[in-house]
Each structure stands twice: as structure tokens, then as C-alpha cells.
Design a protein around this nucleic acid. Structure first.
Length: 223
DNA sequence: GTCTGATCATCA
DNA sequence: TGATGATCAGAC
């Protein structure tokens, strides 16, 4: 695998995105000397890792923005045959052990979504992985309105967690943000607090952005 | 086990 | 057919 150094400037990152736009995943993989898997069933994060490598993301699996120096997070946006987002977007893990006075301004969700490089990628399963095209990426920062709703969602969900109701939260809650399981499988357990403050075990969860939200972002960008 | 990268598989 | 809940891989 060829190692690409992290971009020094936002401008350099954008330049790399422009080189990427219009390439197939097969072409990108060939340039990096990476083998394309037959399908994603056992390689779910492959596309994301490939494009991170191409652009020189340097955060690894740390809980930080991908481009640490620029404070920018890379998110691939899988598109269906209609050019619409196909899946929700994972944001970060729901921290189980945080204190109840955690504020939005310091939250992981806010930090990760402060500055995002969205990178649309074809994701129709009928198309061979190597033949799928990468689209034109764009840098996004939440508008005042968007951040307001994200913050409301986050605060409502966090309130429930602080009350020890985390185990009862379903993916149906939240306008833009939702909480869903995020683990190797449903048997994985992590420590949290029950509704009476007692230590309990639940399946780990993560924050996700609904497709309704990313669909809006995409439409705003390309219309 | 905990984080990252996500998509899969099932059912309403 | 879209959304929810489940799952896969890799680094540390």
C-alpha cells in the first residue's frame, strides 16, 4: 500500500478531491496498490478506508477528525441508483460513562460535524465494486439552522441517557440524529448506568445521521 | 473491550 | 422498499 502524506492545507485537500472525482474505486485501488474485494459483505468499511488513504487522512481509529491538522472529518456518502443517499451516516460512539453535565459545545457529535468533507460514492450493489464512481466531494459546515436541530436532537437523546434510559432509546427518536446499535454483534455488552444509577450492561450504541438529512445536504450542494 | 470505517438483513 | 436493529473488519 502506498502511503499518502496528510494534506497541509484545505486547498490541498480540495485539490486531491478534484483528482478523485470521476475515478472508479478500481482505479483508486490500483493507484494505491490495494486489492478490491469481491463484495462488501465482509469488508463493510473498505470504501471509506480506501478514500481516507487516498486523501491522506491521518487520524487512524482515533476519536478525532480524520485530517487532524485541518480539523476536517471525511464521510463517504453511499448513493443508490437514483443518486440519493442509501444509508445513514455513522457519526460517533455514544459515550456511556460521561458525566451528566456534558454540553453540546464539547460533545463528540458537535466536534465531528463541525467541518465535514462529504464524498459521494456509487453504492448500488448491482454495480461491481471496482466499477463504482467517486463523485465530487465538498466541504460542509452546519448552518445555524442545521446546528440548532442537531443540538436539540443531541440534547434530547443525552437527557435520556443521563436518566439511565439509554437501553430504551430506539432509532425512531431524533430529527436528524438517531441512536442505533454499534457493536460487533448484539451480544457485546458495555457498562452504563441504569435508571437508578446502578451499573448495568447494554449493547453499545452510536450516533447516526439520518438519510433524510444527508439527502438535504446533497440537494443543497448540487441544485 | 473501544474506537474507527461502514453495510447487511430483516420486517413492518 | 425504507428504516431499524444487527453485523463485519482492523487497529490498539
Amino acid at each position: 500500500m502506498i502511503a499518502i502524506p496528510p494534506p497541509d492545507t484545505q486547498h490541498e485537500l480540495i485539490r486531491r478531491c478534484q483528482q478523485l472525482a470521476g475515478k472508479t474505486l478500481g482505479q483508486v485501488a490500483a493507484e494505491l496498490g490495494v486489492v478490491v474485494p469481491d463484495d462488501l459483505r465482509r469488508h463493510k468499511g473498505w470504501v471509506g478506508q480506501l478514500l481516507e488513504n487516498y486523501l491522506g487522512a491521518d487520524a487512524g481509529n482515533q476519536a478525532e477528525p480524520d485530517f487532524t491538522r485541518l480539523g476536517i472529518e471525511l464521510k463517504t456518502l453511499p448513493l443508490n441508483a437514483n443518486g440519493q443517499p442509501k444509508e445513514s451516516t455513522y457519526v460517533c460512539t455514544v459515550t456511556l460513562t460521561e458525566s451528566g453535565n456534558m454540553q453540546w459545545q464539547q460533545s463528540w457529535v458537535k466536534k465531528k460535524l463541525a467541518h465535514v468533507l462529504w464524498l459521494p460514492v456509487e453504492a448500488e450493489s448491482a454495480t461491481a465494486l471496482a466499477q463504482r464512481y467517486v463523485g465530487q466531494g465538498w466541504l460542509w459546515q452546519p448552518t445555524v439552522e442545521q446546528e440548532k436541530i442537531l443540538r436539540q436532537d443531541w440534547e434530547e437523546l443525552m437527557d435520556r441517557i443521563v436518566l439511565g434510559e439509554q437501553a430504551d432509546i430506539t432509532a425512531k427518536e431524533g430529527h436528524y440524529l438517531q441512536i442505533r446499535p454499534k457493536a460487533a454483534n448484539s451480544r457485546v455488552m458495555a457498562k452504563t448506568r441504569g435508571d437508578e444509577g446502578e451499573a448495568t450492561l447494554i449493547n453499545p450504541k452510536g450516533f447516526y445521521l439520518r438519510t433524510a438529512f444527508t439527502r438535504e445536504l446533497l440537494a443543497t450542494q448540487f441544485n
